[in-house]
Design a protein around this nucleic acid. Structure first.
Length: 213
DNA sequence: GCTGTGATTTTCT
DNA sequence: GAAAATCACAGCT
């Protein structure tokens, strides 16, 4: 609501040029913006996952040539991945100098352009619009055409900071849908938020509250 | 509200 | 040839 009353400056290169897990934590609460011919859509990030270097067996940096290539590019670069042959995943390259890593955006809370999202998703249930990595890509019209785009300079997709006064309490847990390195607590989400994904599954909740911002 | 299952295709071993 | 960072829907409690 009030988060769009007074627009924040977009996140710059320096925001993404830090250790990957820290960027994943601080992205929760930020706003994702997307501009297309259909209009503006925006959503508040409520869930992220960090994927590290080759020592993290679930990271594409560990086994995918395509992932290795893009994840060592400039922080702030978009990494689009196709999952299970039919869903797009939206990632942001984020890492300290001379390392690799990326953050998967898993869920956002719809803020603006909800009617546009409903049309793209073929649904009107607001909780179903963006509560999952594949869902939000469909709602925001994110696909392979955004691969390797620079979030710092693009005028079709970008991010803005969250309001400090609305900073959510964060919980860390195990990442979802992976089989390698499943024990790492690299999933971060806003406590109690209804737009977080996978609220059905018995998500391993070995969680721990993390100070936000 | 919960659990199980099928769809679909690129990428890598 | 198999796995993969998922989703929607059917059917049951």
């Amino acid at each position: 609501m009030s988060s769009v009353d007074r627009p924040k400056p977009r996140l710059g290169r320096e925001f993404f040029a830090r250790p990957t897990a820290g960027v994943a934590v601080e992205l929760v609460g930020c706003t994702l913006w997307r501009y297309t011919a259909a209009g503006i859509t925006a959503g508040r990030i409520v869930e992220t996952e960090a994927y590290l270097d080759a020592s993290d067996r679930a990271s594409h940096a560990a086994w995918s040539k395509r992932g290795q290539d893009v994840m060592r590019r400039a922080p702030g670069t978009v990494y689009i991945y196709r999952c299970y042959g039919m869903h797009w995943m939206f990632n942001i390259v984020a890492h300290a100098p001379d390392t690799v890593g990326a953050v998967l955006i898993r869920a956002v809370e719809p803020v603006e352009g909800i009617d546009i999202m409903e049309g793209r998703r073929g649904l009107t249930e607001i909780r179903q619009l963006c509560s999952g990595p594949g869902k939000l890509c469909q709602a925001f019209d994110i696909d392979e055409s955004l691969h390797k785009i620079d979030l710092v300079t693009s005028d079709t997709v970008w991010l803005t900071a969250g309001n400090r006064s609305e900073a959510p309490t964060l919980i860390a847990g195990k990442r979802i849908g992976i089989t390698k390195s499943p024990e790492l607590p690299l999933r971060f989400f806003a406590a109690g938020n209804r737009y977080v994904s996978a609220h059905r599954r018995g998500v391993p909740f070995t969680s721990e509250v993390i100070p936000s911002f």
